[in-house]
Computed example of a mutant assay.
Amino acid sequence: MAWFKRKEKGINTPTENKKDTPKGLWYKSPTGKVIDTEELEQNFYVSPEDGYHVRIGSHEYFEILFDDNKFKELDPNLTSKDPLKFEDKKKYSDRLKDAQDKTGLKDAVRTAVGKSGGEDIVIACMDFRFIGGSMGSVVGEKIARAADYSLKNKIPFMIISKSGGARMMEAALSLMQLAKTSAKLAQLADANIPYISLCTDPTTGGTTASFAMLGDINISEPGALIGFAGPRVVRDTTGKELPDGFQTAEFVQEHGFLDFISPRQELKRKINLYLDLILNRPVRNVS
């Protein structure tokens, strides 16, 4: 299967360098602000001085959004295969095993059902630590099954996107997930079940081209990178210089692709407020 072997070297950031949460006693934000990691955790992994939102994964988002961090994980043991026998510097099957060993995750998304503000919700959360949050067959299948669970039980659905795009090691199988997940979200729309899309840093590639931009409401955290192709590719294709802040959440909102931007500390309250309003429920005081 020589078609699926990369012959030229490209960008290949080691998985261990794609960290979500900070390690050590202190964390230094990109603007140079230093904060104790325990204080950072208590502040929802947001630097209090400059508002920088540190990348976090499904473990932290579930803790923030589910009441008392109680939830039932859906399809926790679903794992990817290697039907194309893809090989770059190492076999895809070996890279999957390495990613699983280093992250403790089965793949780049976890799905769960639980209560948020006392009401049921299904959440699918991507993890950038697992091969850059790339979208392969398992990511598409777990999101589709979570949408089915939401549809069957008439529970609001939420996806937290954090992805570098489609997983090249699965080629066309990865691209098929765009249509697959989009079709499932269309079924939720037909059944009048709310779907919330939260775009976090980064939300790019095939993720942006499918479920990340199909929410009944599309929201983001401050400063998140949101786009399809990278700035260099866009610049080379259009032959034009890009405006300041291009592909930041604030730029995307200004141009009509986001409904609002929420600091992480207010995320749970705002999501539940939206659901109360759209479902015609009594508005609750959610903290």
Rank of each mutant, 00 (worst) to 15 (best):
M1R: 06
G10S: 13
I11K: 14
T15A: 12
K19L: 15
G24D: 04
S29G: 08
S29K: 06
N43T: 10
S47R: 03
E49N: 13
D50H: 13
I56M: 07
Y61H: 13
D67G: 06
N69R: 12
D75L: 14
P76S: 09
P76A: 03
L84D: 00
K89T: 04
D94F: 11
R95S: 09
K97V: 05
Q100M: 15
T103E: 02
G117Y: 04
D120M: 13
I121F: 07
V122R: 03
I123D: 01
A124M: 08
G136S: 02
G140N: 02
A146P: 05
D148Q: 07
D148P: 04
S150Q: 04
L151A: 14
L151P: 11
K152W: 08
P156K: 08
M158N: 09
M158Q: 13
I160T: 05
I160K: 03
M176Y: 05
L178F: 03
A179P: 03
T181N: 06
L188F: 08
T200N: 02
T204A: 01
A209P: 06
M213F: 10
L214N: 10
L214E: 07
D216I: 05
P222K: 07
P222Q: 07
I226M: 13
G227V: 05
P231L: 11
R232P: 10
V233S: 15
R235N: 14
T238I: 13
P243M: 12
E254K: 15
E254G: 08
D259P: 09
F260E: 10
I261R: 02
I261Q: 02
Q265K: 15
E266M: 11
K268L: 13
L273E: 07
I278P: 07
I278G: 07
R284N: 13
